[in-house]
Nucleic acid binder design. Structure first.
Length: 277
DNA sequence: CTGAAGACCTGCCTGC
DNA sequence: TGCAGGCAGGTCTTCA
C-alpha cells in the first residue's frame, strides 16, 4: 500500500528513467480506474513531449511537459514497474507507457493496479498547484520548516482524535494509516487523544516523529506491505522495523507491554497502552 | 462549519 | 474442497 515514502522512492526511479527524455506512447488497456482516465487529453499533453521534470506532491507523481502535467496516483494497490517489453507482464496491467530516457534508450513503464483505486490524469498549463487535486493540500512533512507549530495551530479547537487529524491531507500530506500509527508511537501520543488538547511541545515531537518515520522508510526503499513494489519490481524493506502497525497482541519493542488494536473512523489503529498517553 | 461513515474495488484470509 | 463473508485503506462523497 503505497504511502509517501513508497511514492518518493518510485518518483526517484521514474525521474532517472524519464527526466529529459520523452513519453513516446501511452497505451491504455482499460481506462476505468477510480475515475475514467482522460485518454485523449493525456496523450495530447504528454505523448511526444520532452519530460522536463518528474516530481512528487503528496502521494501524486507528476510528469511535467511544456503543455502540462501527467498525474499518477497509485491508490492502494497501484505500482509502476519498468520493463523492456510492452506486453503486460502480470494481471491488472491497465496502462503501458513507452518512454525514452535522455539518451534515447527506450523502455516501458507498466501501470498495474489490482483494485483500481488509483488515478491517471493530466492537467493542462504551466502550474498544477491550483488544480482541485492539490489546492487544499497541507504542507509536505519532509520540508515544512515548522510542521509542529503548523499542526499545533491547526489543531486548536478540534475535538477529532489526533490520529484522524494527522491523516487529514489538509493538515499535512503523506501520513497514511501505517505511518500515523508509527509516528504517534514514536512521539508517545495516544491515538485517541483530542487533537485540540495536545500541547505545542508534543506537536513538536510528533512532527519530528513523522519526519523520522518517513525518512527511515525512504532510506529503506519504502515499506513492504502486501502490494507495494518499487519501479524496478523490488520490494522495500521497512516492514521489519514497524513498531506497532499490524502487531496487535505482540510485545512492545520498547516496554514489552501488549500492543493493542482499535478502530478509528473505520481504520485500524495500533498503539502501546504504556508508551502512549 | 465539523467529524464520522459510506462507497469505490478485488485479492487474500478465515471459518464453516 | 468450496464458498461466503470480512478485511485491507486513499480519497472523495454523503450525511448528521
Amino acid at each position: 500500500m503505497p504511502e509517501l515514502p513508497e511514492v518518493e522512492c518510485l518518483t526517484r526511479v521514474v525521474r532517472v528513467a524519464l527526466k529529459g527524455g520523452r513519453l513516446l506512447d501511452a497505451a491504455f488497456l482499460r481506462a476505468d480506474l477510480r475515475e475514467p482516465i482522460p485518454v485523449d487529453e493525456f496523450r495530447r499533453l504528454l505523448v511526444g513531449e520532452v519530460v522536463e521534470d518528474v516530481f512528487r506532491r503528496s502521494k501524486y507523481l507528476l510528469m511535467k511537459t511544456r503543455r502540462g502535467y501527467g498525474v499518477i496516483h497509485l491508490g492502494m494497490t497501484g505500482a509502476l514497474v519498468q520493463h523492456d517489453t510492452a506486453a503486460p507482464q502480470e494481471p491488472h496491467t491497465h496502462a503501458v507507457f513507452r518512454i525514452a530516457n535522455r539518451r534515447g534508450r527506450e523502455s516501458y513503464l507498466h501501470y498495474v493496479d489490482a483494485r483500481r483505486f488509483g488515478r491517471i490524469s493530466c492537467l493542462a498549463g504551466a502550474s498544477y498547484e491550483s488544480h482541485a487535486f492539490f489546492e487544499n493540500l497541507g504542507p509536505e512533512p519532509l520540508v515544512c520548516p515548522d510542521l509542529g507549530g503548523h499542526l499545533f495551530n491547526e489543531s486548536r479547537g478540534r475535538k477529532q482524535p489526533i490520529k484522524a487529524f494527522l491523516m487529514d491531507a489538509r493538515m499535512v500530506v503523506g501520513v497514511g494509516n501505517i505511518y500515523a500509527s508509527e509516528s504517534l508511537f514514536r512521539a508517545g501520543i495516544h491515538p485517541e487523544r483530542e487533537a485540540g488538547s495536545v500541547a505545542r511541545a508534543r506537536y513538536g515531537r510528533l512532527a519530528a516523529a513523522v519526519r523520522e518515520t518517513l525518512e527511515a522508510s525512504i532510506q529503506a526503499g519504502g515499506t513492504t506491505f502486501r502490494d507495494f513494489r518499487n519501479a524496478d519490481g523490488k520490494p522495500g524493506y521497512f516492514a521489519v522495523s514497524l513498531n506497532v502497525y499490524d502487531r496487535a497482541d505482540e510485545p512492545c519493542r520498547r516496554c514489552a507491554a501488549t500492543i493493542r488494536q482499535l478502530r478509528q473512523s473505520g481504520r485500524s489503529t495500533f498503539f502501546c497502552p504504556v508508551c502512549q498517553s
